[in-house]
């Protein structure tokens, strides 16, 4: 990762974090579809990125979001889990030729169909862990499942829109 892309990623984390805190915090479609747009930043780090810094960044980002959401630990827990399973899932959905060295797993580089198959299960696992922990002890498993399904779909939809609008397209080969 060179210096320029490092700056880009730091900006991405900050901007998405701010959007999450200031705009999306109180948004819940029909009371069940939440939007966790800041996950896009964790999802679009380069495929070759080391696991340790990724885990640390996700944990700190989750903790920051938590502090504003008054849900201390919930986002941190789920985001760390997401960062942990990301490399394994990347390996699982890798295209036949493998990844290039500095591939970013985004729509512009990998295509829409691949991105959905990459991002949706990861976001769903995040949401499921999040709502399961939130409703721990109330025994409402189905409601957690319901919320995580709609939240992950809604988040993915917004993630796609954000990427199509704001992510720079790589110059054609």
């Amino acid at each position: 990762m060179n210096f320029r892309s490092l700056i880009t990623f730091i900006l991405l984390v900050i901007v998405l974090g701010l959007i999450q805190i200031l705009l999306l915090k109180n948004l819940a479609l029909f009371g069940i579809a939440f939007c966790f747009l800041y996950l896009v930043s964790i999802l679009s780090f380069p495929t070759s990125m080391n696991a340790v810094p990724l885990l640390l960044i996700s944990f700190l980002l989750g903790l920051t979001i938590d502090v504003f959401y008054e849900t201390l630990g919930l986002h941190a827990l789920s985001a760390t889990f997401l960062a942990f399973i990301r490399p394994y899932w990347l390996k699982f959905v890798s295209p036949s030729g493998g990844y290039d060295d500095n591939t970013n797993p985004t729509i512009n580089e990998m295509g829409m169909a691949w991105y959905i198959s990459y991002a949706w299960p990861l976001i769903f696992s995040f949401c499921f862990l999040f709502f399961l922990t939130d409703q721990w002890g109330t025994g409402r498993f189905l409601s957690a499942l319901n919320k995580s399904f709609f939240s992950s779909t809604f988040t993915l939809l917004l993630a796609i829109i954000v990427q199509l609008l704001f992510f720079k397209r790589r110059r054609g080969i």
């Binding site: 696991a51 944990f59 630990g73 941190a76 827990l77």
Partner: peptide, 20 residues
Amino acid sequence: RAFLLFVLLEVIAVWLIVAN
């Protein structure tokens, strides 16, 4: 190391949830 760090961070997160 990645797995150990993961476990450590999750333990911290769970501890924060419970303590809070």
